[in-house]
Design a binder for these strands. Structure first.
Lengths: 314, 314
DNA sequence: CTTTCACTTAAGGAAAACTTGTCTGACATG
DNA sequence: CATGTCAGACAAGTTTTCCTTAAGTGAAAG
């Protein structure tokens, strides 16, 4: 009756069997024969002194002891696998995993990736478009590009340039709505993806900055910034969009920025990675490329007037 | 360069070495020779392709890869050990681990344990006196006795009798302070351990229940209920104490309850265990004994007037 | 200068884990 | 109702892993 850990291979066999609820599938996962797995389970049961599985005719089910052991075993092996692959990743200079929000991925990263791939053919880039927060130390992600006013504690954080929003529309619409005042009659497109900001950086704020009364503003709402910009490209209306989201569409003539008035928000994009990861070549390469790519468009809109949203009186 | 998990014995060797920062101690922990451990670490490093430790003259230190791997490895093995011992515990009908707050342990459980041990010699009882919440499913604890108004979700919960508080003091002091009114001049002992209750169940509440003005009340404060009762036993003053904390001291004459007025709180002690653990013999035995032991003192203080603290106007 | 300490290296042997092959019992199909 | 199939159990033999003993290295401590 030892209280020490049982043979780990047996435990792992149990974990696989419990996850698949099948000895055969577990054996396949571990690349062993079903016989070997059966033996491992049996030996674990002998160690414990009680069965972990109830053998039914064509299936197995966990006994109470099995149900007690399974979650913890799974958790344990998950942590080990996790730790091991993190360590492997540390040594792998050929792949780079980047996470960014869906909007930035669609409107900024994706159109430029070909360029990065061409200048760094040795790096295999993987994109993970998701808003959910990742733990760079635990998840298999090397770089996160995040929008907000985050504290980024314990991380290497490089904020990108000032972030501001302007109305954008198709050239057609721009002719119909020549002044900020006239926008009050335009179909408005609202980007709800940044509604968490405080102070809010939305159509009412921009109208106030422009000195136009901000009555209740109807219009179409989108939960994702890229969808809002896409809608504007399609001529559906006038969107208030963040700078990085519109660069390509403006450069290629689908959208125009008729009014030289933008509202600035304190929230920024930041380039985040672990401090100890800053030295890894693929991360340096990507960061250098990322920042250089941003600088390329530094003097677009040099003539625009940028008003901090904090200064726009409510 | 397999991405699969490396040999688990090697990983465990690494975990032990990283925790002790010493191969020799790790070898001792795993009951192997230092040579075997050295070999395991070496094989793990070969698997990974890079050293995990930097061998110094008389010590080892982790490389960056080692620092990346160590926390996750520790977490993983901790989870496995945890899961295994929980499962063992499930089968072990000879030991029973109970956690309770320090006050109940000192004033109620400890004095009665001899009785339990005598009637159940086959059960080895372990007490863990701590206020910190335990996860019965994760920690090595079978039964928790907790005070409060908890929801006890997912647990088998048996609340014990109505909980109320009365002033207690030594017989000497009782002569000097014959009326509730006179207590205003008595040295008061405050039990801060239940200050989290709302509505508060403290001296001001009792005085209001007694119809005595509750000016600011100086006195000695204790963070633990048992210390407050001990102080009262020592004649330091008058304590407002919960029923279970004073039974023994009253039965044995160290304390008296001169005023037949108690304030009742909604918070109770509950006997908590996992639903699936209810069947285990040592848990049933302990619960039966616990509840019977409480019933033994059911008709102490039959004549006391108990006022719910909610009814005591602020 | 010698001792000691912590880890390494090498070789042999014990214990584990795996494979092949056979067997059992129940479900499912014709 | 017979039979093919499927999931797992069991046995024997082999491979691999793992551990031990014993000798060795190099730096710090006495």
């Amino acid at each position: 009756m030892s209280d020490r850990l049982p043979p780990l291979t047996a435990l792992r066999a149990f974990d696989a069997a419990a996850r698949h609820m099948s000895f055969a599938m577990a054996a396949a996962e571990l690349n062993v024969t079903p016989a070997a797995l059966s033996f491992q389970i049996k030996s674990l049961e002998e160690h414990l002194g009680t069965p972990l599985f109830r053998r039914l005719n064509r299936a197995v089910e966990l006994t109470e002891a099995g149900r007690t052991l399974a979650p913890g075993a799974d958790e344990g092996f998950r942590a080990l696998t996790q730790a091991w692959s993190s360590t492997r990743r540390l040594l792998d200079d050929t792949t780079l995993t980047v996470t960014a929000g869906p909007a930035l991925t669609a409107k900024w990263l994706a159109p430029r990736l070909f360029d990065f791939a061409r200048s760094h053919p040795e790096i295999e880039l993987r994109l993970s478009a998701s808003l959910k927060m990742v733990d760079l130390r635990r998840d298999d992600v090397d770089v996160a590009i995040r929008f907000g006013t985050g504290a980024d504690e314990g991380l290497s954080s490089v904020p990108v340039r000032r972030e501001w929003m302007v109305p954008v529309m198709t050239p057609d619409l721009a002719e119909r709505f020549p002044t900020p005042q006239s926008l009050r009659d335009a179909p408005l497109i609202h980007d709800d993806s940044i509604s968490f900001l405080n102070p809010r950086c939305d159509w009412p704020a921009w109208f106030r900055a422009a000195g136009v009364a901000d009555d209740p503003l109807p219009g179409t709402h989108f939960s994702n910034a890229d969808h809002a910009v896409d809608a504007a490209c399609a001529g559906l209306g006038v969107a208030l969009a963040r700078r990085p989201m519109i660069i390509k569409d403006v450069q290629e003539g689908r959208l125009v920025v008729p009014f030289k008035l933008a509202i600035e928000t304190r929230a920024r994009f930041r380039f985040l990675c672990l401090p100890e990861a800053e030295k890894r070549p693929q991360i340096r390469a990507f960061r250098d490329w990322f920042l250089a790519e941003i600088d390329k468009t530094a003097d677009m809109w040099a003539d625009i007037e940028i008003i901090p949203v904090e200064d726009v009186s409510e």
